[in-house]
Structure formats: C-alpha cells, structure tokens
Nucleic acid binder design. Structure first.
Lengths: 374, 374
DNA sequence: TTGTATGCGTTATCAG
DNA sequence: CTGATAACGCATACAA
C-alpha cells in the first residue's frame, strides 16, 4: 500500500487507492476517457513504471516472466503507447518531413509511394506537405516540419525557391536534409538524389537527329529548375556534336500543362517552316501537342517527330506511342528514404549525391524521318 | 539573481548563473546543440516561462510591450516551438492521419492534394500511409496513427478490409473517423464522403442504351468494394429500366490495370458475338481495352462504344475521346478535411454522410450507334 | 499583468 | 533484475 500512495503523489490521480484494483479492471477507464498509461499497468502489477516501460520493449534486463505479464496486461487494458511523449523524451520522432511542389502529379505520387513504403519498412513515417511552387509556402512547410521535430527532411524545391536559408535550422541542428528530383541550383554541399537529366536530354536529342531531324524545337519548363536546365544543356550538347547551330529561338519555356501544349501547338502551326521534331520536357505536354497537331492534319511522326519525358502510364497507350524517358519514381523515393535514414543513423557528415539511371524508351513517335509522308 | 537560482532548481541546467547572460548572447547555444526553449527566453528577459509561453501566442493577458520583447528575443535566439511538447501537454496534435490503399493513383493523389491544402489552411497537417490493399497493413497504419495521437483519421479502405475493429480505439476515444471514396460495406454509423456511384453507373449505362446498345459488357473491379458494387447496381438498374435481361456473364471482375485491360480485350475478341458497348469502371483500363481493340481493327465507337470512369487527365487526349465520369478528387479531399476538422472542433456526435455530385462527361467514345460502320 | 507549481507520458540514469 | 527520480518542453489553474 505504501507503493501505491507513492505513485499517487507522483501522478496526482484523483482516485482513492482502495478502489484502484477494481478501477483498473472495470470499464470506468473508457468512460472517463482517461489515457491508459504505463502507470496504470504498473499499479496493476505492482511494479514500477520504469519496469513497464522496459518490459514493453523487451528490454534485456527484464525477466521474461515480467515482460509477458506486462505485455498481457497492456493488451488487456488496451494500452497504446504515446509516441509524442516518447519522442519528446528521446528526441527521436521517427518522422520524416517531405516537401513537394504538388502532390497531384503522376511522377510525384510515384515517388511518394516509394518513400512511404521504404519509410514504413524502416519504422518511420511521413508528413507530406505541398509548396505549390512558392518559396513562401516552402518556408512555412519547413518551419512546421521543424517544429514537429522530424528526424530528416526530403525536399523537391519549388520553382520559385531561391536561397535555401529556410533550411538552415535543419542544417544547424544537423538534421539530415536531402533534395530529390529538384535540387537547388549552383554549387552547394546538400545531399541530393536526381536523375541524369543532361544525359537524358542529350540522348533524346541525338536520337531525333539520327532519325533525320535538323530543325528541332525544345519545349521545356521553368529554366530556373535544374531538371529543365539540364535537359536543355543536353539538348544543346547534342546539337553541337552534330554541328547544328543553336539558337534561343529553338527553346520555348512553358508550364508544360495540357493547355500549354495546345497553345504551343497552335503557335507551331503559325511558323513559316515547321520543325521536323519536337523534344518536349514532359509527357503530358507532349501528348497535348501531338494531339492538337494530329487534329490539324499533321502526321506524327510522319512530318514531325515528338518525344516526351517521364514515361507516364498513358504514353504507351497513346497513338503514336510516345518516345520518352523512364524516370524511376518509385525507386527514387525508396533510395531517397533509405539514404536519409542512413544519414540519420550514422550521423554521417558527407553529403550523398546520387544520380539515378534513367531509361530511354524509344517508341513510334520518333520513327525515322525517312518514313515521312511526301 | 534570486529568480535565476530558482529557475535553476526547476530546470537543473549545468551552467553557472554568472555566465548566463553572456551565454545566451553567444554562439555557444548552437555549438552545444541545446534546444532553445521558452526557459532561455525567460531567463534572458527576467520573466517567467509562463509569461513567455503566453507572450509567444499573444495571450490577451500579456502587455503588448512584454509580448513584443518576448517575440523579438525568440527570433533572435532562433527559438522554434516544440510541437511535440505542446501536443503532449494539450493533447491536441493538429495532425490528421490518412490511410489510402495506394498513393500512386491519379485519383488518390488528387484527393490527397486537396486534403493537404485544406488541412494546412486550417492549421493541420497530414501523416499519409498506404495499406497496399491489405487489412494487415491497414491495421498497422491505424495503430501508428493512434500512437501519434492524430486528432482525426481519414480512411479509404483496402479491398481486403472486412471488419472495422481496428478503428475501435479511435471510436472509443471519440477521435473522429471519416471514410472517403471507399467506405465500409453494410449498415454502419461511420462518417463518409463518397460519390453517387450507383447513379453514375446508371447514367453511363443509360447513355449507351439510348445510343443503341443492347449487349453491354461491364468490366469492373473488386466487387467487395462498395464503389464498384454500386456502379454495378446502377448498371443493373438501367438494364432493368430498359427491359434488357441481366446476366452475371455481363460482368467481368478484374484489377482494372493496363494489363487487365489488354487481357480483357483479348478475351472480348474471342466472344461469339461482340458486345456493342463496354462500361469499364475506370479510365486506365478503358483506354487499354480501346487501344487493343483498335489495334485489332475494331472501330471505336463505330463497332463498340466504350466508357470509362474517373476522367483521368488523358481521357480527353486519347482518340477517341473517352466518355467518363468526372469524379471530383480535389473537392473530395477538401470536403473530407473540412468535415473532419468540423467533427474535431464541435465534438459533434452525429455522423457526416456526404455524397458528392459527379459529372457525366460525354465524349466521342460513346457516339450514337447508328453512326456505326456497316 | 505576471509568477508558481504542476502534469502531459515516456525514458535515461543511477542506485540497489 | 528492478525501483526512484528527474528530465523532455510546454501550457494552464491558481495565486498574487
């Protein structure tokens, strides 16, 4: 009875000790909606809360017998550990923060699916937030995630993002920060997982040149984003290699949506000489362009070759099947999470720089130009 | 100096009081990687931690002057509130748990995007988890989310899920639980947000019948899921209304993926008499089927009308443009989050049952059957 | 308007 | 192997 009293001082419960045993075995718990804590278990078993805490996680220093007793009682009482309290005490939340420009893109949802899977496998979970392509929201997300004491943060930057100062709290506190897909421009020492956009752009362009093109149009996204800038670089590199003079007029910057594609197609039709191929920086826009041009009687790939980027699920169902770059979304997600968990666990200081392999998917839409209609 | 000593007793810091002012203004904080807490701010300003806590959130009982002083110092020290501690204390986490079968579907990512947006607007954020269509994982997700003391949980059930017992901890503790898109079968008193799948199935079928079809094939998903069961019900209802006899042979259950569509198409081509229309329960599969049939020389909609479900982005770019049902993903996400936050705040006991309007998108793929090729 | 004291539920440390 | 105690960082009832 002394012990019980002692606990009562500690925890300052309202109940009278005499009622305690009955109380624990009754339904009153639920009715009072009081949390079932390790103290409840402790009191019932006449052990200390510390022992319960250990027993619950099979701490080696606790006897098997006590362990099972504790776990059984926990189950009986419907005990659910409080992860918040645990995180507060241990300063480990097993939470990873994720910031993406938007959730609802084919590619992004694939990445996130991979991330979630890998995270759960390693005992982590994700708080996912959207920056909607603005720096302001990206900063707010970062703050919220910091306040929630995530163990690591995965970011695909917004197109607006300039400095990376909003991540300095993480850096200062040595909380791993890893960029995926869209990494910051310029020289920096951040960790990142990307694909070789430059090489992909290069190979796609080379393919079209080899198929007979000389007058290539590149329709791309916001050039401030490294992913697009590098595809462009690859494009230019290929032109150079084949002695095709480059001019900025060959590059159109758009938002790469369906409407942007339709508009681009309209504009193309007003050109004095049509391009003989179009390298579009994503599939959605490539298909929108193709679709419009086809409706206006242009033969694809007969008159114009078109290539996309991403290998969206419909790219192969579309007619003509779209040549594109397979961009390993799920894998990127998995690698990103595995890497960051590694950074968390090893407290490794050297940044990860991972460049994933892409796969060039060559399909009908870039068929050789000598198969052209007259 | 007395106060300072007092705080020292309370918080048991290592530092000597004499060094304190210097300490707070120095860089040693960051070097020691000690958290900046309200106590640090309090000591610097010679006020109590309680005052700081209040001042930080502009509590009315704190003078403007003190408030600004506190907030300035907080900023200077790079103070970041600890949401875990706050949640522990207040037992409000401002976190919503979300369980979906998978993240990487067009529709789901749209819903999630809406959810995230609405949640952030209301000061909440999301932990998103995948059940991968298994009950076992769904249960694990529910547990983890419970352990993290989410304020509410949003669920789209896995196709395997049978009982809903794994959500009873939430129900017992009066934590709002809301199903979206896929709600549990049978009678129950859970809150849910769905679309009128039955009516959509009915209208789609009616459309095809009115366009001249008599021999309709319905390709659907797992019938244990209410969403598919109801589409089927609507299908049957329309047949009945037009006195077309129903037979189970008219319904094929598949997984609705691209490959399943191709296989279904192959099987269709082996039928003695081809159906004159096909109502497919999602767009992906509808397009895969159409694509295969077209390749084999079948005219769509000339010989067979096809309709999908979901209005995926490519449905209108495909040739023929796909007749489908627009399923308001973003809106569903927004409504779901708003509803659950409402449940959280009002502690309302009466369940929400929201049925969103869909929109029938009639396009070429179901053009009148009298335009058929001979 | 501000301060005091305490608890939220857990775990680490130290002692036995 | 187990127990007592003190944090983790914050917020609130109560007191002043």
């Amino acid at each position: 009875m002394h012990k019980v009293k002692n606990y009562f001082n500690l925890r300052n419960r309202l109940r009278k000790p005499d009622d305690y045993y009955y109380f624990c075995n009754s339904e009153i718990y639920e009715m009072l909606k009081k949390e079932v804590t390790i103290y409840e278990i402790a009191k019932l078993l006449n052990v200390s809360a510390a022992t319960v805490s250990r027993g619950l996680k099979n701490h080696p220093s606790i006897s098997k017998k006590t362990c099972t007793k504790i776990q059984e009682t926990a189950k009986k009482l419907g005990y659910q550990s409080n992860a918040l309290a645990s995180s507060l005490r241990t300063s480990k939340s097993y939470t990873l923060g994720v910031i993406v420009p938007r959730l609802d893109s084919n590619f992004m949802s694939t990445v996130l699916a991979g991330m979630e899977k890998a995270a759960v496998e390693k005992g982590y979970h994700l708080i996912i937030m959207q920056s909607f392509e603005t720096q302001e929201k990206e900063e707010k997300c970062a703050q919220l995630l910091f306040n929630h004491r995530v163990d690591g943060i995965l970011v695909s930057t917004s197109s607006e993002s300039d400095g990376m100062n909003h991540f300095s709290p993480f850096v200062k506190k040595n909380i791993p920060l890893l960029f995926f897909d869209r990494a910051p421009n310029g020289k920096h020492t951040f960790s990142s997982i990307t694909i070789n956009n430059r090489k992909a752009g290069y190979e796609l362009t080379k393919l079209m040149i080899k198929n007979g093109s000389e007058n290539i149009l590149h329709i791309t996204g916001n050039k401030r984003l490294l992913v697009y800038k590098e595809r462009l670089d690859g494009f230019i590199q290929a032109l150079k290699e084949f002695n095709i003079p480059f001019s900025p007029k060959m590059v159109w910057e758009t938002k790469l949506g369906v409407e942007d594609g339709t508009n681009a197609a309209k504009k193309i039709l007003t050109m004095k000489t049509l391009p003989d191929s179009i390298f579009v920086a994503n599939d959605t826009c490539a298909i929108a362009i193709t679709n419009y041009l086809q409706k206006k009687g242009i033969k694809i790939p007969g008159q114009i070759q078109v290539s996309g980027f991403n290998d969206d699920p419909f790219a192969s169902l579309f007619t003509p099947q779209l040549t594109t770059v397979r961009y390993p979304g799920t894998e990127m997600g998995i690698v990103a999470v595995k890497s960051i968990i590694d950074l968390i666990k090893t407290k490794n200081k050297s940044p990860v720089k991972d460049i994933l392999d892409f796969k060039l998917i060559v399909r009908e839409s870039t068929d050789k130009i000598d198969t052209r209609l007259p």
